[in-house]
Simulated scan of single mutants.
Amino acid sequence: MRVKEFIKQSHLKPWDGVIVFLLILSSFLPIVVFGMQKIPETADKQAILRVDGEEIRTFDLYEGQEAYTFLYEDPHGDYNLLEIKDDQIRIKEADCGDQICVRRGWASKHGETIVCLPHKLVIEIQAKDGSEIGDLDY
């Protein structure tokens, strides 16, 4: 069936097609509007790296952050390679025997931890403003 025959049989007016086209086009308007908004690069959470209870470093976690790595090496030569990407963190490599910390994967929610027992290393996700876990929305 041709388009002209379909239009005649369905009693569509010439402007009906224009209106349908405009409605379909306007359905993409929210994607354009919200896509143009810039995501603020402010961190509302952070990852705290502690070794044997001593705070070594703090990493800000926020969406849109480029991936980078941080190598922690203790005086005995043991190491953990941390990867920070967007609002999450993980241990990418470690020279410990059990590799549980590497298999743990990404941590991104408030209160989550990654632990490497052989190296006495703990990474904990906390709110940057010091609020309690229960005060935050997931």
Score class of each variant (00 low, 15 high):
104 R>V: 07
22 L>V: 12
88 Q>D: 08
138 Y>C: 07
67 A>H: 10
46 Q>I: 14
105 G>A: 01
73 E>H: 03
40 P>H: 05
94 A>R: 05
116 C>M: 09
95 D>C: 05
66 E>G: 11
1 M>I: 13
53 G>D: 09
91 I>Q: 07
117 L>E: 01
89 I>E: 04
96 C>P: 12
1 M>Q: 08
106 W>E: 00
81 L>I: 02
49 L>Y: 05
127 A>L: 14
131 S>E: 10
92 K>P: 13
9 Q>N: 10
93 E>P: 11
127 A>C: 10
131 S>Y: 11
80 N>K: 04
22 L>G: 08
31 I>N: 13
39 I>M: 07
118 P>A: 07
75 P>W: 05
72 Y>P: 09
66 E>M: 01
108 S>G: 11
73 E>W: 10
124 E>S: 08
58 T>M: 05
125 I>E: 03
89 I>V: 08
37 Q>V: 12
55 E>L: 05
23 L>V: 11
39 I>F: 06
125 I>R: 00
19 I>G: 14
57 R>E: 15
94 A>L: 06
60 D>F: 03
64 G>D: 01
138 Y>A: 13
100 I>T: 13
27 S>R: 01
124 E>N: 03
5 E>C: 09
69 T>A: 07
21 F>N: 06
100 I>K: 12
44 D>F: 15
65 Q>S: 09
135 D>Y: 03
136 L>Q: 12
81 L>T: 07
107 A>F: 14
71 L>N: 06
114 I>W: 08
69 T>G: 02
73 E>C: 01
43 A>Y: 03
40 P>L: 02
37 Q>W: 12
42 T>H: 13
19 I>M: 11
86 D>P: 09
105 G>W: 11
65 Q>T: 05
76 H>A: 11
134 G>K: 08
88 Q>T: 12
7 I>T: 13
40 P>N: 08
46 Q>K: 13
130 G>Q: 02
17 G>D: 02
15 W>L: 11
112 E>F: 14
39 I>T: 14
4 K>D: 15
51 V>E: 08
59 F>R: 05
64 G>F: 01
80 N>T: 02
115 V>Q: 05
135 D>R: 02
30 P>S: 03
129 D>L: 03
67 A>G: 09
40 P>W: 00
19 I>F: 12
16 D>P: 11
91 I>V: 10
80 N>R: 03
75 P>I: 02
110 H>G: 14
40 P>A: 00
79 Y>A: 00
131 S>V: 13
78 D>E: 12
14 P>D: 02
7 I>M: 13
23 L>E: 00
52 D>R: 15
9 Q>T: 13
128 K>M: 02
91 I>E: 05
14 P>L: 01
97 G>A: 08
78 D>M: 10
130 G>A: 01
98 D>K: 06
54 E>L: 08
78 D>A: 07
109 K>S: 10
27 S>I: 00
92 K>L: 13
54 E>K: 15
48 I>G: 00
15 W>D: 14
136 L>S: 01
104 R>F: 12
137 D>L: 15
38 K>Q: 15
54 E>C: 00
24 I>E: 04
22 L>A: 12
128 K>T: 09
43 A>Q: 00
36 M>W: 10
77 G>K: 07
10 S>W: 14
4 K>N: 14
133 I>M: 12
115 V>F: 09
29 L>W: 14
119 H>D: 01
49 L>D: 00
107 A>I: 14
27 S>Y: 07
